Measured scan of single mutants.
Amino acid sequence: MKVMIRKTATGHSAYVAKKDLEELIVEMENPALWGGKVTLANGWQLELPAMAADTPLPITVEARKL
């Protein structure tokens, strides 16, 4: 699914347009965010693609819901 990742004042957030859902990312498998699992505030887990740590945000990526 397409997910937009952006930086907020409190960390990172994910927006899933198909579900009209925006949630804070509360847990990251990798400190650089990319190439691992993230957990959203509502409990969803997404697998993000591997990208460079300095990838500019906001960005829309293809993520997989676990």
Rank of each mutant, 00 (worst) to 15 (best):
M28R: 10
V26M: 07
D20Q: 12
E47C: 14
V38H: 00
V26C: 09
E23V: 15
T8G: 07
K7L: 10
N42C: 09
I25E: 00
R6E: 03
E23N: 07
D20L: 09
D54H: 08
L46K: 00
L66C: 10
E27R: 10
G43M: 03
N30V: 07
R6P: 00
V61K: 01
V26D: 01
L46W: 02
E29Q: 09
G35L: 04
N30Y: 12
V38M: 03
D20Y: 10
Q45A: 08
D54Q: 07
H12V: 11
D20R: 12
V26K: 03
V61W: 01
L46Y: 07
L21M: 13
L40K: 01
I59L: 09
P56V: 12
A41M: 09
A14Q: 02
M28G: 03
L21G: 07
Q45P: 00
D20H: 13
I59F: 09
K19D: 15
G35Y: 04
E62I: 15
A63R: 00
A52I: 06
H12K: 04
L40P: 01
T39H: 05
E29T: 09
T8P: 00
D54M: 07
N42T: 03
E47G: 06
K37P: 04
L66V: 14
V38C: 03
L48D: 02
T39A: 04
D20W: 08
K2T: 14
T10S: 13
A14C: 11
D20K: 11
G36I: 04
S13P: 02
L21P: 01
P56T: 11
V16P: 00
E27D: 12
E47M: 14
K37V: 14
V16Q: 02
H12I: 13
I59H: 08
K37I: 14
G36M: 04
D20F: 11
V38G: 00
K37G: 06
N30C: 11
A53V: 11
K7I: 08
R6I: 10
A32F: 14
L33P: 03
V38P: 00
K19F: 15
P31W: 08
I5S: 01
T8L: 09
T55Y: 04
T10A: 12
L48F: 03
E47I: 14
R6G: 05
L57P: 01
I5C: 05
K2L: 14
I25G: 00
E29L: 06
L21T: 10
G36N: 03
V16G: 01
N42G: 06
A50V: 12
L48Q: 00
A53W: 13
T39K: 10
L33W: 04
T55C: 05
A9D: 12
V26I: 13
V26W: 04
D54R: 05
L66R: 07
G36L: 06
Q45V: 15
G43S: 02
E29I: 03
M1R: 02
N42H: 02
L40S: 02
T8W: 06
G35A: 05
G11M: 03
A9L: 12
L21H: 09
A63E: 03
N42F: 03
L57C: 04
G35C: 05
A9E: 12
L66D: 05
P49W: 05
D54Y: 06
E23A: 14
T60E: 14
D54S: 09
E22H: 11
Y15P: 01
N30M: 09
A32Q: 14
A53F: 10
G11T: 03
M28N: 07
V16I: 15
M1H: 06
E23C: 14
I59D: 02
D54T: 09
E47A: 11
P31N: 10
Y15V: 09
Q45N: 07
L24S: 11
A32V: 09
G36W: 05
T55R: 04
L57T: 05
G36Q: 03
A53D: 12
A14W: 08
L33N: 04
A41L: 06
I5D: 00
M51T: 01
P58Y: 06
N30L: 09
K65W: 15
W34D: 01
M4N: 08
E62S: 12
R64W: 12
A14P: 00
W34M: 02
A50K: 11
V16N: 07
K18M: 14
W34N: 04
A9I: 11
T39R: 10
V26P: 01
A14F: 09
A9G: 12
L21E: 07
A14K: 01
L57K: 01
M1E: 07
K65E: 10
A53M: 10
E27I: 09
A41F: 05
L46E: 00
A52Q: 09
L66N: 05
M51Y: 06
V61N: 00
T55Q: 07
H12G: 01
G11C: 06
L33R: 03
G35T: 03
P31D: 11
L66Q: 06
A9H: 10
K65C: 15
A53Y: 11
P56I: 11
E62H: 12
D20S: 10
A32P: 04
A17G: 10
L24D: 14
T55W: 04
A17H: 14
E22V: 09
A41D: 02
K7P: 06
A32N: 14
E29Y: 06
K37S: 10
E22D: 12
G11Y: 05
A41W: 04
I25R: 01
L40Q: 01
G11D: 01
S13L: 12
V3S: 00
A9N: 10
W44K: 00
M1Q: 05
T60H: 06
S13N: 06
N30Q: 10
L40N: 01
K2R: 13
G11L: 06
E22G: 06
K19I: 15
S13Q: 09
R6L: 11
E29W: 06
P31E: 13
P58D: 02
A50I: 12
G43T: 00
A52S: 12
I25Q: 00
A41H: 06
W34H: 02
M51E: 03
L46S: 00
A32R: 12
T8Q: 07
T39S: 07
T39M: 09
M51W: 05
L57F: 13
M1K: 00
A63T: 08
L66W: 10
V26R: 05
M4P: 00
Q45I: 15
T10N: 14
T8K: 07
L21V: 13
W44A: 02
L40T: 01
E23S: 15
V3T: 02
T60C: 12
V26L: 08
L66A: 09
P49I: 06
S13V: 14
I59P: 01
G36A: 06
E62F: 15
L24C: 11
T10H: 13
M28D: 01
P31H: 09
D54E: 10
M4L: 12
I25F: 03
W34Q: 01
M51F: 06
E62G: 07
N42Q: 00
W44N: 02
A17Y: 15
V3P: 00
P31G: 11
L33V: 06
K19N: 15
L57H: 02
A50H: 13
D20M: 11
R64C: 10
N42V: 04
M51L: 12
M51A: 04
M4W: 05
M1W: 14
P31C: 09
W44Y: 04
T60N: 06
G43F: 05
G11S: 05
Y15N: 05
G36E: 03
E23K: 05
K37H: 09
D54L: 07
K18T: 15
P56F: 07
V61E: 01
E29F: 05
P49H: 04
V61M: 03
L24R: 13
A9Q: 11
P58Q: 03
T10V: 12
Y15G: 03
W34R: 02
K18V: 15
P49N: 00
E23P: 01
A63C: 11
K19M: 15
K2Y: 13
A9W: 07
V26N: 03
N30R: 09
T60R: 04
A53G: 09
G11I: 02
P31K: 11
V61S: 03
S13Y: 15
K7V: 08
K7E: 07
A52F: 07
V3G: 00
E23M: 15
L33H: 02
V26S: 04
L21K: 11
L57S: 02
M28L: 07
K65F: 15
P58M: 05
G11W: 03
P58E: 02
I25A: 00
A41P: 02
R6F: 13
I59K: 08
L48W: 02
E27G: 10
I5M: 01
E47R: 09
T60D: 06
G43I: 03
N42R: 00
G11V: 03
A52L: 08
T10E: 13
A53E: 13
G35P: 04
T55L: 05
T60Q: 08
P56E: 12
A17L: 15
V26G: 01
K2W: 14
A17D: 09
A41N: 07
D20V: 07
G36R: 02
L57V: 04
A53S: 11
A32E: 14
T39W: 12
K37C: 09
K65T: 12
T55N: 03
L66T: 10
A14N: 02
I5K: 00
G35K: 03
V3L: 07
I5H: 00
V3N: 01
L48E: 01
T10P: 04
K7Q: 10
L40D: 02
A32S: 14
T60V: 12
A41G: 09
T8N: 09
L21D: 05
A41E: 08
P56H: 08
K2M: 15
